[in-house]
Amino acid sequence: MWHKLRDKAQYLDYWLLIPYVILCAIGALMVYSASSDLMSIHGAKPDAYFTKQLIYIGLGFVLLLFSFFLKLNLLRKPKFLIGVTAVILLALFYLLVLSRIRPDAAINGATAWINLGPFSIQPAEFAKLLIVLYLANMLSKRE
């Protein structure tokens, strides 16, 4: 794997990677500075949210590496786009139904989250990514 990573590193866009790393570091620092006092007041560890943020940043880097090795032809296949669209539409429909059946399932007053135990996801964010993929696919066909 390291051999492939070294070979693909020449194609890496450092003008995108460096701001990403800087924003991750600033975001983790802001989470710590905003939550440490509150956590101390409530008797919890002051770095609990900071640690959770670092875990999410680590997962983000793993996904970044995964997407770096992903073949772009997969993202252009109609079956892939239709499958992802179906999953996202089902998740959005689930939220629509859930918000009417269980209004108490709201997180901080928002019913746009699906609770998956230790973390929650917001399908609208995946829908935004799908729109970018779909438009990129459509515009690449116009050439």
Results as ranks from 00 to 15, higher is better:
Met30Thr: 09
Met138Val: 14
Ile41Cys: 07
Phe93Val: 11
Lys4Glu: 15
Leu98Ala: 15
Gly27Phe: 06
Leu38Ser: 12
Gly43Ser: 08
Glu143Pro: 06
Ser40Pro: 01
Pro118Trp: 00
His3Glu: 12
Ile26Tyr: 11
Leu54Gln: 07
Trp113Asn: 03
Leu89Phe: 15
Leu130Asp: 04
Leu90Lys: 09
Pro46Arg: 03
Ser33Trp: 15
Cys24Thr: 06
Ala106Lys: 14
Val31Arg: 04
Arg102Cys: 06
Ser99Tyr: 05
Lys8Tyr: 09
Asp104Val: 13
Ile18Ala: 07
Pro123Thr: 00
Ala28His: 02
Lys45Phe: 11
Gly117Asp: 05
Tyr134Thr: 15
Asn137Arg: 12
Asn73Ala: 13
Phe50Arg: 04
Leu95Gly: 11
Asp13His: 10
Tyr20Arg: 09
Ser35Glu: 12
Leu98Glu: 15
Tyr49Ser: 08
Lys8Arg: 14
Leu64Arg: 00
Phe68Thr: 06
Thr51His: 09
Lys79Asn: 07
Leu54Ile: 00
Ala28Glu: 06
Asn108Asp: 15
Leu92Cys: 07
Leu70Cys: 05
Asp7Gly: 03
Asn115Ala: 02
Thr111Pro: 01
Ala127Glu: 02
Leu16Phe: 04
Asp13Lys: 11
Asp104Gln: 15
Met138Cys: 10
Val132Met: 14
Ala136Asn: 10
Ser36Asp: 12
Phe61Lys: 03
Tyr49Glu: 10
Ala48Met: 14
Lys79Gly: 07
